[in-house]
C-alpha cells in the first residue's frame, strides 16, 4: 500500500438505492476533477466507482462509499472505499475473473474495475462483509 496523506475531509455517501449509485458517480467525478486527473483517468475512475457501488448495492445489500483525496509527493489521487456488511465473496479468485457472475450481469464489475484503477485492495469475509479500496493517481 502506498503511503498517502489525506487532504481535506473524506466525503461519505450511503448506497441504498439506484439513485445513490448516481450520487456516488457524481461525488467521485467532483473529487477527480479537484485533484486534476486527466479526462480519461476521470472517466476510468468514475466508471470503476459506478461498477463497485452497484456491486455494493446488488451483492452487499447496500453499504457505504467514502471518497478522499490522497497525496504522494507530486502526485495527487482519489481513494474510494466501498464497504458493505453483506455475505462476502466466497471465491475471490473466481470473482476477479472476466465474465464470471453470480448476479446475471456481464461479470466485468470486479475484474474490469480493477483494470481501471492503479491500486485495488479487497477484504472480504462472511462475518464482516466486503471492503474494497481503490486508488487512482494523477499522472
Amino acid at each position: 500500500m502506498t503511503a498517502g496523506i489525506d487532504l481535506g475531509h473524506p466525503q461519505a455517501q450511503s448506497v441504498r438505492s439506484d439513485e445513490d449509485v448516481v450520487r456516488v458517480r457524481q461525488l467521485v467525478r467532483t473529487v477527480a476533477v479537484a485533484v486534476k486527473l486527466s479526462l480519461v483517468d476521470q472517466t476510468k475512475v468514475v466508471t470503476a466507482a459506478s461498477e463497485l457501488a452497484r456491486n455494493t448495492l446488488v451483492y452487499g445489500g447496500g453499504g457505504s462509499v467514502e471518497v478522499a483525496t490522497v497525496e504522494n509527493g507530486r502526485r495527487k489521487g482519489v481513494r474510494i472505499v466501498f464497504a458493505d456488511s453483506g455475505p462476502g465473496i466466497a471465491d475471490l479468485d473466481l470473482a476477479l475473473t472476466d465474465g464470471y457472475t453470480t448476479g446475471g450481469g456481464l461479470g466485468l464489475g470486479l475484474s474490469g474495475s480493477r483494470r481501471l484503477v492503479d491500486e485495488f485492495e479487497i477484504e472480504t469475509s462472511p462475518e464482516t462483509g466486503t471492503r474494497i479500496t481503490v486508488t487512482k493517481w494523477s499522472r
Binding site: 480519461v40 466485468l108 475484474s111 483494470r115 481501471l116
Partner: peptide, 14 residues
C-alpha cells in the same frame, strides 16, 4: 461516444 468513454470501455473489457 466520447473518446474517454471508448478508451474506458476497452479497458473495462466491454
Amino acid at each position: 461516444m466520447r473518446p474517454a468513454v471508448a478508451i474506458t470501455l476497452v479497458e473495462l473489457g466491454l
